[in-house]
Amino acid sequence: MSEAPRDIENLIELMAKLPGLGPRSARRAVLHLIRKRGLLLAPLADAMHAVAVSARECITCGNVGTTEVCDICTSEKRATGELCVVEDVADLWAMERAGVFKGRYHVLGGTLSALDAIGPDELRIPKLVSRVGDENITEVILALNATVNGQTTAHYIAEELEGRCDVTSLAQGVPIGGELDYLDDGTITAALRARKRV
């Protein structure tokens, strides 16, 4: 027999599908929402409805926003001639959190993967190439993961853009606060190769 009415069970089932939640934690979350109905549940429902209606992918960069072209792409201040290429929207948000990069972005939507049969046509690489020409891009910064798939994709893009603009990539090495003893040998190898004069 079900412990809660059908509508609430339905909500619990949906919540349990969210990252980081399972059936028990979803049940706790729903119970908490119901107890804070005015303070949390109703505003959350309204916010989710609004996002469900308005959320869309930027047709230029692939970022998630509420307009056809996102705020970053429409901002004249961000037209610096620099374009940062990231794997997905979460990476774009991570870059924005750092607040250092002032140019525009391009979200690929994945990386080349032999295993999953993801080739260049499945990613937004053709769109990237056309943007470089259309937006007078002088430098493309490849902020892709330091994985085999990420770097394979980076090399592919670098070749596609050869002669069109400068192509750079993020440095690889010891993270801030990192201790050498806890680093894997691959990171230490990369860090040693990218050593700099102090």
């Binding site: 770097q151 090399h155 190898t189 990369a190 190769r193």
Partner: peptide, 15 residues
């Protein structure tokens, strides 16, 4: 042993 790190900068070897 990590092999990928040693060749990540070499597009042919990575291929």
């Amino acid at each position: 042993k990590s092999r990928a790190a040693a060749i990540m900068g070499d597009r042919n070897a990575l291929a």
